[in-house]
Design a binder for these strands. Structure first.
Lengths: 244, 244
DNA sequence: AGGTGCAGGTGGTCTAGCCCACCAGATATT
DNA sequence: AATATCTGGTGGGCTAGACCACCTGCACCT
């Protein structure tokens, strides 16, 4: 096992990625055991460095450690998957559904004060408005209206947005590293317009998700409001008891 | 600053708790700076140990570090607070509201197969059923039905449940250390019964939270279903973009 | 057969260092 | 006055050890 000692990516992160790949490829299977000392020998690093690699994987729930026994690849949770910062496309893929979308509106305009403040923008700046109907296996699932500063991706094309994942686009083409998001979930009644789009009855229950996405440097990237069909969508979360 | 070197609680955890107290008491204020080397001198531990204390606080968002500058007490987020594993009482207190409750049903019975499996119980075991209307500042906010294995707290009294926080009871009296929970959030329509209890119109939107709470050893402690008024309750979450 | 005790492996914690890139403010140079 | 350079402090990363509590399986003894 060879690491690149002169890379800018830290050793522990290279180890983490290696293990993650091995788990995804099936080379390491659920239940398989690892050991900190064995890893530190295999990768020729100190044990503390191996530990740091394992820590991240433990926090993701990919591995779990038992004192006195070892560290093991976690059995994949049946059913419940934790809510992650995923776009609709990625979210649906994880649920085993195929995402598609229909653009309802795609425009650029000068945001009002509230939105400008949410996106930390100067008063002259513009935003893209991306309004899409989201389908899973061709069934309407959500309608989503997002706002992204034009400065971040001035070349954004309707066709690009149409094809698929906005987040992948931002990460791969515009080189913006998404890091975290704040979400607020509420229950509401579908408006007539939403009901039409989603093919549900007016005033049927919907799950409304308002999300602000941030880059690694805490710059707001996107503000988005998604209205999910209450009868077909559920959000799974894992909570920790921390602090006191 | 003195640590108990012979305690069973690790040094880094003692440091973490000390800092947490100092922040809560106002002795350390938002914006104040700390340094790993300074802490390691002050507490007479190695720098790695001081680092480990800071890591936990960073992950909680209480502190944040800037390379080349230092580690600082984070300004408290206005408004948005992240969803934590809290009982209703604690949740409302954080929102600045006073929680109270009215017991609708309190009984013990033999669970059906589905519930038994969720709580990992043997076939003879019994559970408490605790069904409560939850109020915030005397306004109905949610109705909540929880199931707890009788074995965990055989002495549970109706009066105890009536007084307040079930979670505090479990932690302080029955010495059960809660560690995490899985939640599923969905939007739905209030049933007639729920609408009556919550003083809302029948078929008004409600946020349904189904939660399973686990102890540190992964034993399921409680399965609970809460129905929140859609017009008065929202759930805030923080998401991280991790792994791939 | 059934228990007892021991040895080796494991994760958890901790030490006392090291080098690096980065940042800020002071100092020196133009 | 503006600019470059130095300097001390910071977090990030890493090392090569150490001791502990805990778990497991094995050998030994009863």
């Amino acid at each position: 096992m060879k690491l690149n000692r002169h890379s800018f990516t830290p050793l522990y992160h290279q180890i983490e990625q290696t293990l993650r790949r091995q788990i995804e490829s099936g080379e390491l299977r659920p239940g398989d055991g690892l050991s900190e000392r064995e890893l530190s020998e295999r990768f020729e690093v100190s044990r503390m460095t191996a530990r740091q690699a394992l820590r991240a994987l433990r926090e993701d729930g990919v591995l779990h450690s038992e004192r006195g026994r070892g560290t093991f690849v976690t059995e994949p949770k049946l059913n419940v998957q934790t809510r992650q910062l995923l776009g609709f496309t990625e979210d649906m893929r994880r649920r085993g559904l195929k995402a598609s979308s229909r653009i309802i509106r795609f425009s650029r305009f000068k945001p009002d004060e509230a939105l400008r403040r949410q996106l930390h923008l100067e008063s002259g700046a513009e935003v893209w408005e991306i309004s899409r109907l989201r389908l899973a296996d061709r069934i309407p699932m959500a309608c989503e209206t997002g706002f992204v500063p034009v400065d971040l991706c001035p070349q954004l094309k309707r066709a690009e947005v149409e094809r698929g994942s906005l987040y992948r686009l931002l990460e791969e083409i515009y080189n913006i590293r998404l890091s975290r998001a704040d979400e607020i979930l509420t229950a509401a009644c579908a408006t007539r317009e939403e009901a039409d789009l989603l093919s549900i009855k007016p005033r049927a229950p919907v799950l409304v998700v308002q999300r602000t996405v941030y880059a690694a440097d805490e710059t707001p990237i996107e503000v988005v409001r998604s209205v999910y069909r209450g009868d077909r969508y559920q959000a799974a979360i894992q909570l920790k008891r921390s602090g006191r």
